[in-house]
Simulated assay, not measured.
Amino acid sequence: MPTNKYELPATPPPQGETGAPLTRQESREIVTPYAFEVCPNLLGVPTAHPLRRAIAMGIDGIIISGLAKASLLLILPVMTYLIWFRLQAKKFNHVILLLLATAFLAASATWMPELIVEQDADLNVANKSLSADQAMVLAATALKIQAQSCELGCMKKELEKTTKMLRKAGVDKVAAVEMMDSLVDGSDFPAEQWPLYRDALLDDFPAVAPQKPVEAKPAQPEAPALPWYIPDENTHSVVAWVKGIFADLGIGVGWAVFYFTATIAWCHGQTIGKKLMRIKVIQLDGKELNLLTAFSRQGGYGAGLATGLLGFLQILWDPNRQAIQDKVASTVVIRLGREKRPLTH
């Protein structure tokens, strides 16, 4: 009996001269159906919705940022999460290593995460630059309006919400037009209707973003704290914004490798974000990922950025909603707590 409910049941070996199945090495030397075989127990299991996956990634991104800033507020929950699952698996050597790593990190960590620090007026940064939260809203809106289930009325509702957010952020009309065009590009919004509808939405936007008056302040002995990432004032592309974050994170990339590899391999395919969103990564053969497979899967995130986020957005149209990292590791992200659906109507 298989130990995992998604694991393939025992099947008789394929017919041949000896009846013995090919080894893993032999299956790499010729074309076989083994690489594309899906566990029968996985058939009909609902996949995770793109928006749910985007929210999970946003949560994980905040956690990784806190880890890169040596914040005990996030280091302790992450290490506790890993230790708990290692205890359940009775991997006591891993528990000891994680406890030692936690003690080492705690020696130099601070409690405050300092993920995003309020910009000081003396920095005189153009206030049309978007904050991290606002850029995440834009990314989520792009995913939603390009989903097949989002019709014209749904698109207009989401675009109106985005317009209000941009107006509140003080974005000027030129920048707002660029952002809105990039959101609609590739969606099913009627091309002949879009210019008139966009101009109506942005009619009251200022031609130039208003500048906040700089108040005189007494000299400070210490330099003001900088945000963990300040996008260039001419950066309106979500793709460029994400690339800039990863370029500036530095050590955060190493934390991302550790976080995604360890949590996916040791915590039954669930990062903290995926756990909260009730979704799970699993291999197409029904088995859970080991460290090597989890490591190769997280490497797919770099490929997703290299393709201008297209590797991530393909979950909107790809069968089984596989993103580029799922293609790399032959995995699928499933929705937990939902009943299976039949494959036929």
Rank of each mutant, 00 (worst) to 15 (best):
D326C: 11
G244I: 06
Q193T: 07
G337I: 05
D188M: 15
L289S: 02
K90Q: 14
A70R: 12
V45D: 01
T23Y: 04
E215I: 09
N234P: 00
L313T: 07
P9G: 07
A135T: 12
V95L: 08
G170R: 05
T23M: 06
A107I: 09
V174T: 14
E29M: 13
K5G: 08
L201I: 07
V31H: 06
A200P: 11
Q146K: 01
G61H: 15
M180T: 13
I83M: 10
Q146S: 01
A191Q: 10
D122S: 12
G254R: 03
L289W: 01
K90V: 11
E192T: 14
M136R: 14
Y197D: 10
K173G: 03
K280S: 02
Y81C: 02
V137C: 07
D181F: 09
G252K: 06
P221N: 08
P9T: 07
A54R: 12
A126E: 07
N320W: 13
A223N: 14
A265V: 08
A142N: 15
A132T: 10
R335C: 03
P21T: 10
L289Y: 00
A10S: 15
P319I: 00
K156G: 05
E114W: 07
M79Y: 14
A132W: 11
M155R: 04
L316E: 00
P319D: 01
P13E: 12
C154G: 02
W266K: 00
P210V: 04
I64L: 04
F92G: 08
V125Y: 07
P2Y: 12
V184L: 04
Q119C: 06
M112S: 15
T331Y: 03
K340R: 05
A147G: 13
L8N: 15
A247M: 13
V214E: 03
T235C: 06
V281S: 01
I245Y: 11
V208C: 00
M1L: 12
W241E: 09
V239H: 09
N290K: 09
L316P: 00
P40E: 01
I75Q: 04
L82W: 10
T344P: 00
P213W: 00
Y6R: 05
L276W: 06
I245Q: 15
D203P: 05
V214R: 08
A175K: 04
R28T: 12
A176Y: 06
K5P: 14
L196N: 13
K340T: 03
G254T: 03
K156M: 14
L87S: 08
L43G: 00
G337H: 05
A139L: 09
V95W: 04
P319L: 00
K327M: 15
D285H: 08
A247E: 12
L309I: 08
H94I: 07
D188C: 13
Q134V: 14
A106V: 11
P33G: 03
E26W: 03
V117S: 07
L309F: 12
A225P: 10
P50K: 01
C267G: 04
T102K: 03
F295Y: 08
S149W: 02
K280H: 04
G304M: 03
T11M: 09
G302L: 11
L143Y: 05
P221F: 09
L87I: 10
D172N: 11
A191Y: 05
Q325Y: 11
Q15V: 11
E288Q: 05
K243H: 11
R167F: 14
M112R: 13
Q220E: 15
